[in-house]
Every structure is written in C-alpha cells, then in structure tokens.
Amino acid sequence: MRWGMVIDLKRCVGCQTCTIACKQEHALPAGIVWRFVADCEVGEYPNVRRLFLPMQCMHCANPPCVPVCPTGASRQRSDGIVFVDYGQCVGCGYCALACPYRARHLIHEAQWYFPGGPTPSEAATNQPERHGVMTKCTFCLNRVDAGLAVGLKPGEDAAATPMCSVACIANAIHFGDLDDPESPVARLIKDRGAVRLLPECGTDPSVYYLTE
C-alpha cells in the first residue's frame, strides 16, 4: 500500500479552500501553512496562461528529508507517509533544505495573530510540542488511520480522507492507494498521463498532477 494524491490542475480554481481546511484541521499557527496554491503565470506576454499549482509535501518514496535528519525525527511509514516525530526534532532545518519542494515549515516559537497573547481559539488549539521543530503535511495520517480502524476506505470515505481533498470545491484533489490498480488515483494516473514535479531529483513523489 502506498498512499498518494492526484491533483487535477484543470479543475483547480485557486480558491485556497484546501489551504484553509488544512490550516484549520491541524490548528496551524500564524504564518504557517502546510499546503498552498501557487498562482503561476506560464509563458511570455502575449502568450500567457494562468495556472494554479497546489503545493504540499510530496510524500516521496525516496524522501531526501529522511536520511539527512540527524535525530531520526523525520521518518517514513510503510504506507509511504513521511512524518516528523516532534519529540525527537531538534529544529536544525536540515530536512527543509534537503527537500526540493519547499514542503517543510519550522515553527520557530509560539506565534499569535494579535499582540497580547493568543485568542481563546488559539489558546485552545495551541500545541507547544510543535514550537521550535519542523512541521509538514502529514497526509492527515490521523484521519487515515482512524478511518482504517473502523473499516473506512481513505479516498472514498470522507472521514478517512485528507482534509484538503474533502474540502476541495472543484473535486480537484484525489487521494488513494497508488499500489491498487483499481483505485481512482491509479486509474487517473494511467488514463490521463499524470506528471510529477522535479523528476530529475529522483525522489519518486507520491503526488501527481493532471495537466491534460
């Protein structure tokens, strides 16, 4: 089993709903997003097009961030999900520089939206264990694991699917098992010729993009 994602760039409208859904799901502090939608201009005037590119951790099969980690805090599960053990991370930033996708985010210290301390909701969702350590997209592994535990199918059952995919208003983000040839993500990759970012880096990303 290898969890992966297929993002349809022809459906993405750049609304950033996935960005905010992720931020809310993981109670991310001010200034931190684990995913974002880049607003790209492709071509040269007058032949230009606008393109929205959702960016996040690619959960690479060969993740450069994992072997460089000096503490073993960056790890990869057998299902391909790459995650950070906050209790082991020293916050050196090496993994973020090893990642070619700009997918890792160091939370230097507690950050609040307003001066004078946290709002009630920030106080309620504050996670001190994430201060001073590296953070990143987890493919919502808690939702995936909890869903599997009660017999749900990630990618098909919303409760077991990453929040960005569930929240997408254009149904542009598909999640599922890349190793299952009958899964929707595997079929999309096969039928529509998905591409991946920076293949020259040899990372074998688990996030695919549909451009045709």
Partner: peptide
C-alpha cells in the same frame, strides 16, 4: 531554493 518546474504542461496559451 531551486525553482519548481514541471516537464509537460497541457495548459493552452492565449495564442492557442
């Protein structure tokens, strides 16, 4: 940080 590039892009340009 290295630029993010994509090998093939199916979006059409304004001229197309």
């Amino acid at each position: 940080l290295r630029p993010i590039t994509i090998a093939s892009l199916g979006v059409r340009t304004t001229a197309e």
